[in-house]
Each structure stands twice: as structure tokens, then as C-alpha cells.
């Protein structure tokens, strides 16, 4: 069985590309939260829950929405056959530091469930699952750097040996200076695309190249 990378989205500070083409760019450098809000408006996400999310989830949500939008026929699939595989270096450290800060001063002690719930990296997969009713396999891996071999290898196993037909696969990292997201969709190649986008064979080399360019 062969599989195909059917769409992808990459976000680096102040710049978003979809399918290798520039989608949105801020002319002047903005802080991450402002950039994410501007991109949300520009992309017309129309999902108010977005504003409650932490930065990691906002980054992952934007990249996922834009990647999925470029791959229209995924919606016809059984949602229990769609898997989410995500990875990053910093886990949920951005929200972890916020929670740690909220409890560091005993005079001003304000741990909040709305911050604490984001102190797990897999929450981004929960957010995506909720938005699209995607209920298939989940896995969140931590690696020191983007690991195309790992993502390729585990997606391939899911596509070949479980009922999985489609994988939303990605890297989403939010840290002091290192913020980026790369989300791509993998489908079995026997799954007929009506509106074919920029398709590429699902190989770790192709994944690496898409991430690096």
C-alpha cells in the first residue's frame, strides 16, 4: 500500500505557507499572540473557542485548519478512521511556566483550571478532535528536533495495520524563542481525490524536505 501527502501547512513567526505557497505574512514583526490573532482573522477560522486556547494549541489549530482546508475530500471519511499524530520538543512548557508562575508567589496564588488544562501537549489533539469529531488513534511524541522518520514510520504502521485511512500528522512547538508548526495530511493512495492538490509520495525524505523548505 502506498500513501500520499495530500496537503501541508507550515507556520514560522510572522509567516504562514500552505502547500508551499505563501498564505499570510505580517509585514512588521509581531509578538506570537498578536500574529496568531491576525492569522485567525485573515484565515476566517470562525471558531470562538480558539481564543480560549493557549499558544501551542492556537499554533497547532491554525496549521491543522489550513492543511485540512486544502484537502477537501477528507470530510467524507469515517471520522473514527482518522488518526492524529503530533510531536514537538517543548511539550507544554509554555503553559507549564505560566502555571508554575501562578503558584510561585504565596501572597498572589492563582492556579487556574483554564491554564492547568493546557499543561499537557496532547490537548491540541483533543481540540482538533472536538472541532471535527475526529475519534481515531492519537499519539503525541516528544523529540529533540523534528523527526520525519518517526512520524513516517508510525503513520505507515497505522495506515497498514489498523483501520486508519487518513492521518493528520504534525510538529507544533511553542517555547521562548522556538515557535513553529508543520502539519500535513497523509492518505492511502487508493482513496480517490476529486480535487487533487499538490500530491507527493509519503516518504520520510519528502516529509523532511517539506519541513525544511
Amino acid at each position: 500500500m502506498n500513501a500520499i501527502i495530500s496537503s501541508y501547512c507550515k507556520i514560522v513567526p510572522n509567516k504562514i505557507s500552505v502547500g508551499g505557497k505563501l498564505f499570510f505574512e505580517e509585514a512588521s514583526e509581531k509578538e506570537l499572540p498578536e500574529f496568531l490573532s491576525a492569522a485567525y482573522k485573515y484565515g476566517e477560522l470562525n471558531y470562538p473557542k480558539f481564543h480560549k486556547m493557549d499558544k501551542l494549541c492556537k499554533l497547532g489549530m491554525l496549521a491543522t485548519e489550513l492543511a485540512l482546508r486544502n484537502c477537501p475530500d477528507w470530510k467524507a471519511l469515517d471520522k473514527s478512521r482518522i488518526a492524529l499524530i503530533f510531536s514537538n520538543q517543548s511539550s507544554s512548557l509554555d503553559s507549564d511556566r505560566n502555571h508554575a508562575h501562578a503558584i510561585s508567589d504565596k501572597q498572589n496564588y492563582f492556579p487556574s483550571p483554564s491554564v492547568f488544562v493546557y499543561t499537557l501537549p496532547n490537548i491540541i489533539m483533543g481540540e482538533i478532535a472536538i472541532k471535527h469529531k475526529i475519534s481515531g488513534e492519537n499519539a503525541f511524541f516528544i523529540s529533540n528536533q523534528f523527526d520525519p522518520e518517526l512520524l513516517f514510520s508510525y503513520s505507515t504502521i497505522l495506515l497498514q495495520t489498523t483501520g486508519t485511512e487518513f492521518v493528520v500528522c504534525g510538529w507544533v512547538n511553542c517555547d521562548r524563542t522556538h515557535n513553529d508548526a508543520f502539519v500535513y495530511c497523509v492518505k492511502k493512495s487508493n482513496f480517490k481525490e476529486q480535487n487533487s492538490g499538490p500530491e507527493l509520495d509519503h516518504t520520510s525524505e519528502n516529509i523532511r524536505q517539506l519541513y525544511n523548505t
Binding site: 483533543g126 481540540e127 472536538i130 481515531g136
Partner: peptide, 8 residues
């Protein structure tokens, strides 16, 4: 594994 797709 499977996701509830219901609440975080």
C-alpha cells in the same frame, strides 16, 4: 487508542 472528540 481513540478520542472522545467531546471535551478537553
Amino acid at each position: 487508542s481513540a478520542n472522545d472528540a467531546n471535551h478537553i
